[in-house]
């Protein structure tokens, strides 16, 4: 059974790193989580982004957040990537597998995965 003591240990460990993390998250990955997104499979996409951002070691520069309907429901699941000083990138028809690649190539490597963007969608 997961104990609250374990949680307290997580707290103590994190307190030492929390100051280092602040201010460095300049990339925002936003997943559309309205009825349209959820029905199209946005929940596993969101979870994949959260997992990958941490497992690929980019948690210090990117945060994953949720939003409501982005307005292009036929392209759901839709994910937007905001980075300061750059134009917004909109990824469409996302899947957990695609999320993994977006984190590796775009968030980590700085190269937009063009084939998943709305500009390439038919």
């Amino acid at each position: 059974m997961k104990s609250l003591e374990e949680l307290a240990a997580i707290r103590d460990k994190m307190k030492s790193t929390v100051l280092l993390r602040e201010g460095h998250n300049d990339i925002r990955i936003v997943v559309g989580m309205a009825t349209c997104g959820i029905a199209a499979g946005a929940r596993p996409v969101l979870n994949a982004f959260v997992e990958e951002v941490n497992s690929q070691g980019v948690a210090d520069k990117a945060t994953v957040t949720q939003t409501g309907c982005i307005g292009i429901c036929k392209y759901e699941p839709v994910v937007e990537v905001y980075e300061s000083g750059k134009e917004k990138v909109t990824y469409v028809h996302m899947t957990p597998e695609k999320a993994k690649r977006v984190v590796a190539e775009h968030i980590k490597g700085g190269r937009v995965v063009e084939e998943y963007t709305i500009g390439s969608a038919k």
């Binding site: 059974m1 609250l4 949680l7 997580i10 707290r11 460990k13 994190m14 307190k15 959260v50």
Partner: peptide
Amino acid sequence: REIRAVLGEEIPLDSFEVMQWIQESLKE
């Protein structure tokens, strides 16, 4: 509310480590 009481104000619930604890607690 119980989790927040342990974490205090500095550690947000959506930190990866905390979310992992919550997920594992529920799965268990």
